[in-house]
Amino acid sequence: MRTFNQQFLRLVPSGRKLVIGIPFLWLCLFFMLPFFLVMKISFSEAALAIPPYSEIYTYAEQKFNLLLNIGNYTLLGEDELYLSAYLGSLKVALFSTLMCLVIGFPMAYAITKASKEAQNVLMLLIMMPTWTAILIRVYAWMGILSNNGLLNGFLMWIGLTDHPIEILNTNTAVYIGVVYAYLPFMILPLYANLVKHDQSLLEAASDLGSSTFNSFWKITVPLAKNGIIAGCMLVFIPVVGEFVIPELLGGPETLMIGRVLWQEFFNNRDWPVASALAVVMLLILIVPILLFNRSQAKEMEARG
């Protein structure tokens, strides 16, 4: 028993190793390892079984067989649906990121100009919705945008149109929903960056005769670069995979990859194709994700 205890104690890692090891192991097991599994399943074949895919390797009679089925990937290339879904997602993500930037930058800028106490309250007001279910916030828009909803009622009341405009179940509604849902994620890193700026630089510029717009463009924007990158990536990356907003606000013509993946998985029960879709999505997103991580690291260095 005693020797067992000693051996056991030797196995118990030191405090330092534990502190690093627990979160590291958790993230490896529940975040990184699953991606390799997705990759593995994407090479298997759909089968009528539980779970609904075939094993990619077999071992029988001292023969190890590895069977990689690239059919899922060629399917993605051949079928128009998937290609246009990827393009649709990228388009929605790109334009809504730009819209968030155009709306969010002035907002973040205005917040930094407020008093310290007001800044806290304003940031709380900006961030509070992100704690509320995206589902509910999107649902709120469904009532507003529908044919007999408030927006159409308002438009007809002021006489802009005499018949309801179809907004719900179109791409317009998806854009509204995405900008609405992701605007706080743009403002947060922008504000965190802008609030650190040294105001004396702007004063110096204006003393030297620079116009407000000129100093904004030449001083504030370059200084805010990391904040802009972080904000844009925080919007762009999740929007590419967005499911709830296109599902609830979009129409049949709204092809987005998150929605297609969901349908392949839940409706068609085709796990291998869903996995292949996820792998390709990850490949598309890997550059933006690396950009985000780098801007985060830089921002952290700048703060320390």
Binding site: L29, L37, I237, P238, V240, G241, F265, S275, N293
Partner: peptide, 22 residues
Amino acid sequence: GGLVTAPLVMPEVITGLSLLLL
């Protein structure tokens, strides 16, 4: 560092699918 910050931006459909497969 990457593992800690990546879940912030990873599309939920990918995380969900990969965890289910795990």
